[in-house]
């Protein structure tokens, strides 16, 4: 690439709202970490970093799927109960039905994909807002989770399964490794694969995407399937990590995932967002959360900060949109002046 275009790109990144938002986020993360490290030298201790990440690995995995759904202009709030459902099914399959790890996991993930298929298909066929469809799934599935467990935890699986959620590969806890690998894979696909590129077109302008030859229905449904699949995968790892499956696990996870995407700067109306940005969003939430624990602040305040951050992030996006609109208007005026000049000549 030639220098000029590189320069243009840099300037574009800095003046473009989304780029600026990422930069702000990175600066905030570094700032909070430095301050915390200064006052609580244990903050950046590998052990604390591991705790910090382990507390948030389900959110990392789930927010990958959520990013894709939100880029299409949809939303999936059923992920929390899909997560708990996966925990329960994989546990029951092994503990009560005596299945092996692999078939139990595959069966669980298959069921989760079916749930995603249903979400996507209903939202598309009935053209009901995905918020409503997935809210229905969230509540129904939570009821199912309660009913099939009688509200009790399911536990007692093998050490081999426990290794999935608790074990390490070299120095890395396996769930975190899985989350990072997934983020890299999907991040790369979203940037570089034609199939995933279509997600952006759908979110940017669904009708135009259809006229441009995108199979809108199929792509949208598949995104919900991926989202439920990832929630299910997080659930399987979660069951292993906690050593027990419980219907209440993962509660409010959908909100954290959506918050991560929003803080990362994606437009909730669709068309923009990236896995990298969402990861910054999750990191931010995880660090703020951890800071509260370390500093022994009453954790009740955590949600206050979280909520405040979300509102700020959205306000920032709106500001950027607004500024773009002004730019558009100015450009229109310039264009019309040009027309007039041509007419006068």
């Amino acid at each position: 690439m030639d220098k000029q275009s590189l320069l243009a790109r840099c300037r574009h990144f800095l003046t473009d709202g989304i780029g600026a938002q990422h930069l702000t986020l990175i600066i905030l993360i570094v700032l909070i970490s430095t301050l915390m490290q200064f006052f609580f030298p244990l903050f950046l201790d590998p052990l604390n970093v591991e705790t910090l990440l382990m507390n948030f690995f389900p959110e990392i995995i789930v927010s990958i799927g959520m990013t894709m759904v939100i880029i299409t202009g949809g939303i999936d709030i059923s992920v929390a109960s899909v997560y708990a459902f996966a925990e329960i099914i994989v546990a029951k399959a092994m503990v009560e039905a005596g299945w092996d790890i692999v078939p139990a996991t595959l069966f669980t993930l298959f069921l989760c994909c079916l749930i995603g298929l249903m979400n996507g298909y209903l939202a598309d066929i009935l053209s009901v807002h995905p918020m409503i469809v997935t809210m229905g799934t969230l509540l129904t599935l939570r009821g199912v989770n309660l009913a099939i467990t009688d509200g009790r935890a399911v536990s007692g699986y093998s050490d081999a399964f426990a290794f999935l959620g608790q074990g390490h590969l070299w120095f890395f806890p396996i769930p975190i490794l899985v989350a990072i690998v997934l983020a890299i894979i999907f991040g790369y696909l979203l940037n570089n694969h034609r199939y995933f590129r279509q997600i952006y077109f759908i979110g940017g302008n669904e009708k135009a995407a259809r006229v441009s030859g995108v199979n809108v229905r199929w792509v949208k449904v598949s995104v919900y399937v991926i989202c439920s699949f990832l929630a299910g995968l997080a659930g399987v790892l979660g069951a292993s990590k906690y050593g027990a499956a419980h219907w209440g696990h993962g509660n409010m996870m959908e909100m954290k995932a959506i918050a991560a995407v929003a803080v990362g700067g994606a437009n909730l109306n669709g068309g923009s967002g990236s896995i990298g940005a969402t990861m910054l969003g999750v990191c931010f939430l995880a660090i703020v959360n951890n800071a509260f624990y370390i500093a022994r602040v009453e954790t009740f305040w955590y949600d206050v900060v979280n909520g405040g951050m979300l509102v700020l992030a959205v306000a920032f996006s709106l500001y950027v949109n607004h500024r773009n609109e002004i730019k558009l208007i100015n450009q229109k005026i310039r264009a019309s002046n040009r027309v007039e000049m041509e007419a006068n000549q």
């Binding site: 952006y200 077109f201 940017g204 302008n205 009708k207 135009a208 995407a209 006229v211 437009n267 068309g271 923009s272």
Partner: peptide, 9 residues
């Protein structure tokens, strides 16, 4: 605007 462009891209 409606059927042609992906305005934010």
């Amino acid at each position: 605007k409606v059927l042609g462009l992906f305005l934010s891209m």
